[in-house]
Amino acid sequence: MTPWTRRLACTALSTLAASALLHAGACTQATSPEPDDEDLLAGVIYRGGATDEALRALLAVAPEDVPAQAAVIDVPVHGATLTGATAPELRWHIRDAFGDMRLPDRRPPPNLPLPWNDRASSPLRRAFAPLLDLLGPEREARAHGSPLNGRGYLLVFTSSDDDQVVMRVFTSVLTYTPDPSEWERLQTAAQPLTLVITNAVFEDNVIAEDAGPFAGEPSTFIVSP
C-alpha cells in the first residue's frame, strides 16, 4: 500500500467512524427514547420558508394557553361553509403579541432534564449543524435554506367526526392557500373540519425563551365540493 492510498483509506475510515458516531449520537439516549422523526413529521406541508427542524422543536413542547399569543383564525370564520373549485386564502393573526402583556415565569430549573431540553437545540448541535448535515442521518424534509426566525405556525386540520388529522401545514407566514390536491383533501374529508393553529417564536429554528408554543383558538367549518 502506497503512502497515498494509505492516507486515502485512513481518511475514508475516519469519515465513516465520524459518521457512525453522529448516527449513533443522533439516536442514543438510553433513558428517554426520541420519537421517530419520520412519524412525527410525516406528511407535513411546508410553506413560507418554515423548516422541519423548527417544527420538530415545536412538536417537542406542549402548547401553552396564553390568550394574547394565540393565533386567531380570520378565514374561515367559525361555522363557515367554504365552497368552490379553488381554495380560498386562509388567514389568521396573533391576538395581541405586542400588546400590554405579562408572561408568567415558567423557566425550568437550569439542569432539570425536561423533555423539551432536547438534543436538537443544544448549543453543540447548533454549532456543528453543518457537519451533522454532512455526515449525519438523512433528514426527511430538508426544508428550504435559511433557518426559521420569527413566528412559525402549525395548522392542523382535523375531521370533527373522528378526530383524524386530515392535513398539517407548517408555515412562517400569516396566510395559506391550499393547492388543488390539498384542497381536494379537505373537500373529501369527513365534515365538518376543525382548524387549530399552534405558534411559537423561533430563533434559528429553536424556540426562543418564553416564546411558545402557544395554543390557538379552533375554528370549525365545512368544506363542500
Binding site: 442514543t28 438534543r119 443544544s122 453543540l124
Partner: peptide, 26 residues
Amino acid sequence: TVVGCSGGDDGNTPTSGEGGSGAHNP
C-alpha cells in the same frame, strides 16, 4: 462528536454567562 448526545448538555439549559439571570425572570 463524543459528547454531543451524552445527555450532559441540553439545549434549553440556561447558560447565559454574562447575560445572566435576566433570562430567567421575565
